[in-house]
Amino acid sequence: MRAVFATAISADDPLSGLEVGELDDVAGPPGWVKVTLKTSALNHHDLFSLRGMGLSADKLPMVLGCDGAGIDEDGQEVMVHAVIPTDGWRGDETLDPKRSLLSEVHPGTFADYVWVPAGNVLPKPAELSWEEAGCLSTAWLTAFKMLFSVSPVGPGSTILVQGSGGGVATALITMAAKAGFRVWVTGRTEGKRAAALGLGAAEAFEPGARLPERVDVVFDSVGQATWNHSLKSLKPGGAIVTCGATSGFNPPAELSRVFFTQLQILGSTMGNRSQFHRLAQFLVSSGARPLIDSVRPLEQAREGFARMLTGDVQGKIVFTH
């Protein structure tokens, strides 16, 4: 089968271990189903894997990719949910301490097909294109959970999204604007800030800028580079909702500000199957759609990885199969 896979791990040169080529066909475990993929999408998780974060050398070669949409064995159009719980787990799969994502333990979606547990396929709404449906399982589902399940505030509140170009950020801006939040964003370039305004943001600022007023909630997937600004931007009693740290995992704590102004720091990881269903329905009913940076055939995956590595991305990078 055609596949995009990791053959080596390098923290300093992640693309050195990336291969695009052929792998032997494999069968899934008993009870798993085969999805022939039409589209898939790139995430920072895929670069982290090539750096050895979440993927160990003993699992190589490993097919990369978490997001995907395609046709199941019954001929149904489906989307793939990337969170794989352990056998026998009951309840929210994102709370399973031994959960994994596709491409960590089991082969991912950057291939002709993927095997997943039967519970990890969901119907693809007819209203969504293959490109849109193929980029929801990671960044968009993460953003949906952050906004509608983890955040303590609702529509009408003022929120700040740190970073305006990545998959989680563009998803947050798009959905929050559709749902009636006042959305402020930070962006590194004038082009990224303009694009965020086009998605529905009310204001766009340079990174670290002093805001006109403090906000109710900050959504931060950047981490180390933005953490101090996130804390300083909050009203007393406000909250940071964090799902990742693309700039580094060691932010300064500023604990005195946290407890003196009674701030909350709320962690969020991925989303469960029920939330994925709700995300799909929200997109259908609201008209919100993923911002797609570019679409490439799977054979040109290396160019997509290189583009993400530079940080010059606005939305999702999608691969066609």
Results as ranks from 00 to 15, higher is better:
R2N: 07
V4I: 15
V4S: 01
I9G: 05
S10R: 02
L15S: 00
E19G: 03
D24P: 09
W32N: 08
K34W: 02
L37V: 13
L42M: 02
H44N: 04
L47T: 06
F48M: 15
F48N: 12
A57N: 10
K59E: 04
G68M: 04
A69D: 12
I71G: 08
D72Q: 05
D74I: 14
D74A: 14
M79N: 11
M79I: 15
V80M: 11
H81A: 15
A82N: 05
I84M: 06
P85I: 04
D87K: 08
D92K: 09
L95R: 15
K98M: 12
K98W: 01
L102E: 02
S103Q: 03
E104G: 04
H106L: 14
G108M: 03
G119V: 02
V121M: 03
P123C: 10
A126Y: 01
E127Y: 00
E127K: 07
S129D: 05
E131W: 04
G134W: 01
C135D: 05
S137H: 01
L141K: 12
F144L: 14
K145S: 15
V161S: 00
A169I: 09
L172V: 12
A177I: 01
A177R: 07
G180T: 00
F181L: 12
F181D: 07
V183R: 01
V185D: 10
R188K: 13
G191C: 05
K192H: 03
R193N: 13
G198Y: 10
L199P: 00
G200L: 08
A202L: 13
E203V: 13
A204E: 04
E206N: 14
A209I: 09
R210K: 15
E213A: 07
V215N: 13
V215A: 15
D220L: 11
Q224N: 06
W227D: 05
S233T: 10
K235A: 09
G238N: 08
G238P: 01
I240P: 00
T242C: 11
C243S: 12
A245V: 08
A245M: 15
N250W: 14
A253G: 08
E254Y: 15
S256P: 07
V258C: 11
F259Y: 12
F260T: 15
Q264V: 12
Q264K: 13
L266G: 04
L266S: 13
S268V: 10
S268D: 07
S268L: 06
S274K: 14
F276T: 06
H277L: 09
L279F: 03
S294W: 10
L309P: 00
K316Y: 04
K316I: 06
I317C: 08
